[in-house]
Write a protein that binds this DNA or RNA. Structure first.
Length: 140
DNA sequence: GCCAACGTTGGC
DNA sequence: GCCAACGTTGGC
């Protein structure tokens, strides 16, 4: 099966794309929401992840990949919560704003639009390709 | 900075 | 098991 595609949100002043590039890899911790957690658990090594800056920017800025599938969140003893490891693949040549996503009929159904508080969500492959197209970026 | 949406918690 | 209170997220 082809790798699945996802989108994760991060507030850039907490942990930005540049921080991820600097670190090379990071542990995607802090998810405390069951739906987001379930999505994390469904991620497989090699899956592609769109990196979205929430609050400031409100745009998709890069492509990352899952380098380690879900394991116990090391920042808590509560075994309900998991993390994955992600690494940057490449930045988008052109950022894709939330406004552009909302304006695109093919992307209007994305949970990013319909379910704005969810921080980790699946992205249908067609929508993923469309976002890369808008970002003038070839698949990584 | 405000506020709506909504998930979670805890008392009953 | 219900539901009110509370906290958080994130767009505007």
């Amino acid at each position: 099966m082809a790798p699945a595609t996802w989108l994760v949100k991060s507030e850039p002043f907490k942990y930005s794309w540049d921080d991820l590039v600097r670190d090379g890899t990071t542990c995607w911790d802090g998810v405390r929401n069951y739906e987001a957690r379930n999505n994390l658990q469904a991620m497989k090594r090699g899956d592609r992840v769109l990196y979205y800056h929430s609050n400031e920017g409100k745009q998709v800025v890069g492509i990352a990949r899952v380098t380690k599938s879900a394991y116990q969140d090391p920042t808590t003893d509560d075994e309900r919560w998991v993390v994955v490891d992600v690494s940057p693949v490449k930045p988008l040549k052109q950022n894709v704003s939330l406004a552009a996503i909302k304006a695109d009929p093919a992307l209007r159904e994305l949970q990013l639009v319909t379910h704005s508080r969810l921080s980790v969500m699946p992205v249908p492959v067609a929508a993923y390709k469309r976002i890369l197209q808008l970002g003038k970026t070839s698949p990584g």
